[in-house]
């Protein structure tokens, strides 16, 4: 099949143009005067890096870590047992149950965010049931909405590895004297690490960089890195947007190393 290798050349070209070049531009804009909107000049300057000490950035960074971190922890704590439950269901409708978690994703994300906004507003459709919340702008509201958005993305990759896992491993460990807790802790958990890493990435990174959700549920006052990037780029301030993106990319690269470690070809990402 060697001759089929030629098929990847266009893909390499495509990825180079759409990933590597923009990535270089972002790096350039971070460390120099380079600017795609007006000047393609190049002189080293760390002006935009100075933005990283600006309170606006620091606040957004802190918020991103806080909200994304809490959301991810909750999603993992809830998602793992749920994935485990799904993987061990002995029903012919097993795939349907899992698929039912995909349906909400088919519903437009923005509309779902508006729905949560409604829930947390004092005057809302919930009044029909004599319920009324006033939580817009509160941390808890943002976290609830985030968990609702990203929980399925934690469950899918973990479910995928658990479902594929050979039950023989568990039986073998029981056979060798492990009790059910030990066999979970020493066999199932380590073998599902790849799925956990993928799940964490699929939850943490989007949560860190969300911008519509914090904007709506946060009532315009809670700023995350995503909001910052969006504001800066559409304000025409390319270098600050690039600098913030660069920070996000560094975080992403860190996680990427993790993936490459656990699952070289990223099969758990699906």
């Amino acid at each position: 099949m060697k001759s089929l290798r030629r098929l990847i050349y266009p893909y390499i070209a495509w990825l180079t143009v759409l990933i590597i070049i923009p990535f270089l531009f972002i790096v350039l804009a971070t460390i120099s005067t380079f600017h795609i909107f007006n000047s393609y000049t190049f002189r080293f300057t760390f002006d935009s890096l100075r933005f990283l000490t600006d309170p606006i950035f620091l606040n957004a960074f802190k918020n991103s870590i806080k909200f994304a971190g809490i959301t991810t922890v909750i999603c993992l704590a809830v998602g793992y047992p749920v994935a485990y439950f799904f993987a061990n269901i002995k029903s012919k409708n097993k795939t349907l149950y899992v698929a039912l978690l995909i349906v909400p994703i088919w519903s437009n994300m923005i509309v779902r965010i508006i729905a949560w906004e409604n829930v947390f507003k004092p005057v809302s459709i919930l009044n029909l049931f004599n319920l009324s919340f006033d939580m817009i702008g509160s941390d808890i509201a943002i976290i609830i909405a985030m968990v609702s958005m990203y929980l399925p993305f934690m469950i899918f990759p973990i479910y995928a590895v658990l479902d594929k896992m050979d039950h023989g491993y568990i039986e073998a460990s029981r056979d060798l004297g492990a009790n059910s807790f030990q066999s979970f802790y020493k066999v199932t958990l380590p073998l599902s690490l790849g799925g956990i890493v993928s799940g964490i990435i699929m939850t943490l990174l989007p949560a860190m960089t969300a911008f519509a959700l914090p904007e709506r549920i946060g009532g315009g006052t809670t700023i995350l890195l995503g909001n910052l990037i969006e504001k800066e780029i559409f304000r025409g301030s390319f270098s600050t947007a690039a600098t913030v993106s660069f920070v996000v990319m560094i975080v992403m690269l860190g996680f990427f190393m993790l993936i490459v470690r656990f699952d070289k070809e990223g099969e758990t990402l699906l």
């Binding site: 759409l18 070049i21 780029i233 993106s245 990402l269």
Partner: peptide
Amino acid sequence: VLNNVPVVNPDIVTGIMLFII
């Protein structure tokens, strides 16, 4: 690894990258 960049990349960064190019 290269293929998985857009998968792992937060949408907003992907958006920026495409916007730039």
